[in-house]
Each structure stands twice: as structure tokens, then as C-alpha cells.
Design a protein around this nucleic acid. Structure first.
Lengths: 199, 199
DNA sequence: GTCTATACTCGGATAGAC
DNA sequence: GTCTATCCGAGTATAGAC
């Protein structure tokens, strides 16, 4: 457990492992990604790696967290802390969103890991359960900023965008010709210029 | 393998197994549903059950097929064969769709099985791969019938609805308070009364 | 057609030496 | 902190009797 002691060394190693894992899954794909496989990529034995994580589930949950961290930096996602959005913000968020999707289309392994864990996280005991709850909220907070005025409440609007993103990934996993970004783009165009602003 | 010979007996038994499996997963939930568990529910040994299916994957894929069959009968879904839709058809399809969603909210085990297989089906070797491709097409054909005139092509519209349905299930699995039907209802209302009909 | 029994594989976890 | 070794459980698959 990296926590214990949390010497800079342990923490640093943990980071290193996560970075490496991210890289392996992104480039070599997820195929039943096992602890052992990650361990080898890091240059550690399976037991050696498990020294830093309580379980397989925890490891992979942390991989997803690390990935979000990267995406946040790389694509400048909103952190959900800001209260309102100007017209410019909306365009910016929208573009960030699309860039993330386009990026995802380059890393099927990560998309698969994400989707797989999303289902397993249904179990409240699973370490990813909280992760998905928290992440979902954060993501929706970002989306809600771009909600147009109209009859649809921002949180509903946000849930729909989230669902579209996740659902398209499932379609894309079985059929990689699906143009996730293009579809989302068209949806946003339709939804955001929605002229029905009567309550 | 039930195929071989396909005596009425074998086929009937296969059906019986699927019906029973459907029932078990629906009522007792999916928790790592194993062949053994289904076998016990059917009153068969694991080996006995595997006599009718080539593998676990095939079994569960067939369970999903059987479920679609039920849903089709019970909720009168369009079969994708009809060419166009009148205003009444649209309302009918929409209501069927919502009823299916409401029904799904009663059977989390089936939703979990579906979602799980949807990810595993990413592998072209998986028996569910073709199932998801075919089913996806059929579902979208149904949705496309309800597409409003406007800038968004019917197939894009259909893909979005499919994505929303599947994506909401992921949200709902981790947080069962999510009102899938209500959200879809609001989306349809917004999308279908879309006045932007300029090409 | 169905069962019992077994074999085999995979992968995660743990013990204990260094 | 890391390894080797081992264990163990789950779960599928198969062999062979009845």
C-alpha cells in the first residue's frame, strides 16, 4: 500500500506504474489486461506491483483516474467550479469535449477499460463505484455549463450528453467505423441552437 | 449442440433453458452469472447444460436474443421492415420505446448482462459480436422512423437515441435513482419538435 | 441426454526469503 | 521494496459412465 509511509519514493513509484499502465493499455490495447501484464510492462513482478495497490480493481480504477488527470491537462476541461458560462466558454467547452472524443478514438484500449469498469462499478463494493459517481458528476457539471436556455433542465441536458458519449463508445467498440466526434458535433449543433425557449 | 439432430426435444429444451435463464437473471440479478448458476436454476448440471450450448458466451448471447424476442412481443417494437412512418406511428414507436425503458428499470440483472456483453463483444471473435451489430441496426431502423425532418440525418439521429439509451443504462447501473425513462422522454420532446427544418 | 468427476487454465492473492 | 514460489478459487470444458 503506497499510503503507508507515503515516502516520496512509494508515491513516485505508484505514479510511474500508473503512467506506464496507461501507456501500455493505450498503445497495446486492452485485452483482458491483467495485473501481470502491466507488471511486466513496468518491469516488475506481479507480486511486486501488488505491493503498491490493494487489488487489481484498485489498480485499474487508479489508471482511469490518472487518465482523467491527463485529459484534464491536455484538453483543458472545466473543473465544475465555475458558476456560469459566457458564450465564449460554451464554444471552448464544446471544442474541448470534441477533442477528447477524437483523442479517445486513438486509444480503444482505454475506452474498453473505461466501459468495462463502468459496468463492474455497478457493485457498490467495487473501488470504481465511487470513482464513477464522482466523475459522472464532474463531467455533468461541465456539460451543464453549455446547456441552452429552454424547457430542458441543465442537469437533464448534461445527463444526456454524458449518455451519448458513453453510449457511442459502446457502438464504436463493436464497430470502429462509427464517427463518434461527428455525431456528437451534430447533436450539439441541434441542441444548442434550440429555439424553443418557452418554459 | 442443439443444432445436431435438432429433434424437437433438443430445441424445446434449449428454449426452456433460455426462458429459465432469463427469469433467473431478471429476478435474482446478474452477479457474475455463471453457467453453473443457470444450470442449477434449470435443474441441470453444468455439464448437462453445456450439452446445449457451445460455450458460456454463446449461452448468454442467446439469452439476450431471447430477451429481445420477448420485448418485441410484449412492447410491439417495429421490425425495421416498414418504410415510412405516419404521425401516429411515431407516437406509437415512442411510447413503445419508453415502455421498454421502464421495463428495463425492473430488471437490473438483464441490463447488466447486456452492458457487459456489449463491451466484450468488441472482440470480433465473441459470439455476441454479430448479435450487437445486427441488433444495433434493427434498433436504429426503428428509431430512424421517428426522426423529424431537419438538418440531422435520420441515421445520426438514430445512433444518438441508441447511445442515449445505452449510456443511461451505465449511469443507472451505478446510480439506480437515475430516471432513464423521464430523461429520454424529455429528449424526444425536444428533438422531435425541433423547428429547425432548414437543410 | 444427463450426470459425476476431473482436468486444466487463468489470474489474483499471500508467505516468506533476500 | 521486490522477488520467487505457492496457493487457491473460480469457472469452463471434457471424458466417460449410465
Amino acid at each position: 500500500m503506497a499510503q503507508r509511509g507515503s515516502y516520496a519514493k512509494g508515491v513516485a513509484k505508484r505514479e510511474e506504474i500508473l503512467e506506464r499502465a496507461l501507456d501500455v493499455i493505450a498503445t497495446e490495447g486492452y485485452d483482458g489486461a491483467s495485473v501481470k501484464r502491466i507488471a511486466e510492462a513496468v518491469g516488475l513482478s506481479q507480486a511486486g506491483l501488488l505491493h503498491y495497490f490493494d487489488s487489481k480493481e484498485e489498480l485499474f480504477t487508479e489508471v482511469l483516474r490518472k487518465r482523467d488527470e491527463h485529459d484534464g491537462e491536455q484538453f483543458g476541461l472545466p473543473d465544475g467550479r465555475s458558476g456560469d458560462a459566457t458564450a465564449i466558454d460554451v464554444a471552448v467547452i464544446r471544442e474541448s469535449f470534441l477533442r477528447v472524443i477524437r483523442h479517445n478514438m486513438e486509444v480503444p484500449g482505454l475506452v474498453e477499460l473505461f466501459s468495462r469498469l463502468a459496468v463492474e462499478a455497478a457493485n457498490p463494493e467495487h473501488p470504481a463505484h465511487d470513482y464513477f459517481l464522482e466523475r459522472g458528476e464532474a463531467v455533468r457539471d461541465g456539460f451543464a455549463l453549455t446547456a441552452p436556455p429552454g424547457p430542458m433542465p441543465p442537469d437533464v441536458y448534461a445527463r444526456i450528453l454524458q449518455a451519448v458519449a458513453d453510449g457511442l463508445q459502446l457502438q464504436w467498440l463493436v464497430d470502429p467505423t462509427v464517427d463518434m466526434a461527428g455525431i456528437v458535433d451534430q447533436l450539439l449543433a441541434t441542441l444548442q441552437q434550440n429555439p424553443a425557449s418557452a418554459s
